[in-house]
Structures are given as C-alpha cells and as structure tokens.
Simulated assay, not measured.
Amino acid sequence: MSAPERIPPRSVTSAELLAEGELTVRGRIRDASNAALLCTVAYAGQEASCVYKPVAGERPLWDFPDGTLAGREVAAYEVSEATGWGLVPPTVLRDGPYGEGMCQLWIEATPDAELLALVDEEEPGPGWKAIGFAEVGQGRTALLVHADDERLRRLAVLDAVINNADRKGGHLLPTPDGRLYGIDHGVTFNAENKLRTLLWGWAGEPLPSESVGVLEGLRDALGEGGALALRLAPLITPAEVDATRARVEALLASGRHPEPNGEWPAIPWPPV
C-alpha cells in the first residue's frame, strides 16, 4: 500500500497570517510609549514575529480620542498599500491575549544604514537635506540632516497625507533588501494639522511626478464609495476621512511638499 500523498502547507499572505494566526507573547518592548508586545504568530504551517499593541495598553492623549491609536495604525497601512509604495509593514486589527489591538509584522532593520546625521557644517553636503540645527551639548549646535533618498521622500508624502504627528528617526526601518518601512503610526489622521516630522528636507519643493500620480490615485480611492474610503471608515472618524481627502486635494493643488506652518512644533521630541 503506497503512502498517502503529502499535501504541502497552504501559502498565506502576511496580512492573513497576522489576522488568523495564533498569537504567543514572547516579551514586552520596553522603550515603547504604549504597551507593545513582541509575539510570534502561527497559521497554516507558517510562523512570523510580530508586534501586538492592545488597545487596553494605550495611554490617554489630550488631542486624540481614547482607544483609537490601534485603528490609526491600521489606517496608515491601508493608505500605504493604496499608494503602491508598501511603506508600512502589514498591519491588522484583531483580538489577542489582552483584547483587541493592532498586530504588525516585525521588521528586521539594517542597523548601520545612514539616513540621519549630525554635521558641523552650515549647509548639508551632497546627498543630504537639512532639517535644522540641534543642541549637542556644551553650548554647541550641529546641523541635523537626512539622506536625499527617494524612499524617504515617498515617506514624507505619505506622512503629509496621514498627518503624522510623530515621524522620528527611530521609526525608520531600512532593510537589507533595500526597502524602507515606517512604523508607529498611532498619532495620525487628526482632523487638525499636526504634521511633525524629521523629513522636512524637501519642504516647499515641487512634488515628483510619481508622487503626483499616486496622490491622484488616492483622491479617486478616497471619493464617495471609493475602495480606500470604505476601508478607512471602520478605523477613523468620518471627519478624519474627510480631512485626509482634503489633505490630498491640497497637495495636488499646491504641487509642492508642505512646509511648517508655525502653529505646531514642526519636529518631534526627542527627534530620534
């Protein structure tokens, strides 16, 4: 009698793995401002590391409704996917060991990638963009710069769309295969302008043609009954969806990267 045919495990997407898999908590990420748990998730013969942030572990904020940060993280992923740039790791909203929360694929970053630097110069060198001057101790200042990198420029456009109030250097994850991811998108999509970022190097410059095309696609997807508008509806408020649509329209109307407006601190603290 011949042995039964072995059926290989079914291939699943990262989002399906995160949404349907069994979560096992491995530890806590101590430097996170809200409860963030390092987990493994297993489903259909596949396993991966992920970050699980339960809503119950969110700290109240004065300018964001309580219990909404996890949904905003998922909304940022949805917008990232709609751009086609894939700048946010796969992220889902699901139940877990400590209740509903955000679950995001863990990304192993390249630790020696040079995206930010402090230089003792008045102007950035070739391949760099100026952010501003920072105190470095003993009464000294240095120029904080970021790389003039297409990946960062795309992320700057995404941040302008989602109104990211906390784009720090530690939220940038370059990977060995040349990709760049942004993480920690809990304070996004506010209806008021709260853009705070390190990626001001292109402020006021014309948007690349690629970005204009992406924004035009977002405008269509955010229209009444649009695919992205429908995906965002359960994650953020109707007013915030409207504000996202308005930011896209404003970017297309100006054709330029936004500039700090002086009404809100332009750079997050601490910046890294």
Rank of each mutant, 00 (worst) to 15 (best):
D95A: 12
R245K: 14
G182S: 04
N163P: 00
L143F: 09
P176N: 02
L251P: 08
L155V: 09
D112T: 13
V51M: 12
A19C: 10
G137H: 05
D66S: 15
I107P: 10
P60G: 09
L252R: 09
P54R: 09
Y43I: 03
P111H: 04
A243S: 12
P54N: 07
R154M: 03
W202K: 06
M1Y: 11
W269I: 09
G21Q: 02
E20V: 04
R219I: 00
P268V: 00
G57Q: 11
I7E: 05
H257L: 01
L198G: 01
V25L: 12
D95S: 15
T40G: 13
R231C: 07
E108H: 14
D184P: 04
P234L: 04
S33I: 10
R154Q: 15
P271D: 06
Q46L: 07
S2E: 12
S49M: 10
D177M: 00
E58C: 05
A156S: 11
Y43T: 06
D242F: 11
T110I: 04
P268S: 01
A42G: 09
A229G: 06
R140K: 12
E114G: 07
F133H: 15
E192K: 03
G125D: 01
P9V: 12
D166C: 10
D242G: 07
L37T: 05
P268R: 00
V161S: 04
V12I: 14
V161C: 07
G132F: 01
G223M: 00
L69Q: 13
G204M: 14
V248R: 02
G71E: 02
I236G: 08
K168N: 06
A227D: 07
A227T: 14
P90H: 08
T24P: 00
E47G: 12
W85K: 10
G262P: 13
R59E: 08
K129W: 12
A266G: 10
E114V: 15
T237C: 09
L218K: 00
D120L: 07
T68L: 07
P260A: 00
A56I: 13
F133R: 15
I162C: 03
G217L: 09
A253V: 04
P176M: 05
L116W: 01
E58M: 06
T175I: 14
L195D: 01
R30Y: 01
A250R: 14
A36N: 10
W200D: 02
E58N: 06
K168G: 04
V79I: 13
A82Q: 11
V88F: 00
G45I: 07
L173M: 05
A19G: 13
A56Q: 14
G57Y: 10
S80A: 14
G96F: 09
G262V: 13
L199G: 02
E16H: 11
L218A: 01
V272P: 02
P258M: 02
E73I: 11
Y52F: 15
E205F: 03
A229V: 02
N261A: 01
L222M: 06
D148P: 13
E22I: 07
L118S: 03
A160L: 00
G71A: 08
R153E: 12
W62I: 12
T110R: 14
A253Q: 08
G170K: 07
T91R: 05
D242I: 13
D112I: 06
A246H: 13
A147C: 13
L17W: 15
V74K: 05
A191G: 04
A134Q: 06
